[in-house]
């Protein structure tokens, strides 16, 4: 079964700005890979539980205790744009 991907929609969902040529190229590559991957679809897996975790463990909690925070300078100094101790981004809505 050939795979048909709306690659532009996928790229938008993934927030990656690609040119039409790039979209075309990635689209074809993905279709090839997914055709290969389609073999897994043929496997009979009815009644099989999916595995999300390799180890059969649960919870992994920590206690409600307060620990040390980072010095804001240690990460704000790494940010592309900051103002008044905050991260700054361009306007959120378009014109």
């Amino acid at each position: 079964m050939p795979v048909d991907i709306d690659i532009a929609k996928v790229a938008k969902l993934a927030r990656i700005a690609l040119t039409d040529d790039e979209l075309d190229q990635y689209g074809h590559q993905l279709e090839d890979i997914l055709e290969h991957a389609e073999r897994v679809q043929a496997l009979p897996t009815e009644g099989i539980e999916p595995t999300s975790h390799p180890m059969p463990m649960v919870n992994g909690f920590r206690r409600d205790e307060v620990g040390e925070c980072l010095d804001p300078d240690s990460f704000l100094s790494q940010a592309p744009d900051t103002r008044d101790g905050q991260f700054r981004v361009p306007r959120i809505l378009g014109e």
Partner: peptide, 20 residues
């Protein structure tokens, strides 16, 4: 502390001082 880390739940602190 927060849901997934040990930073205090303190939304009134100076910006970005309760972060890890």
């Amino acid at each position: 502390s927060k849901m997934f880390c040990r930073c205090p739940v303190d939304v009134d602190a100076a910006p970005n001082t309760a972060c890890c």
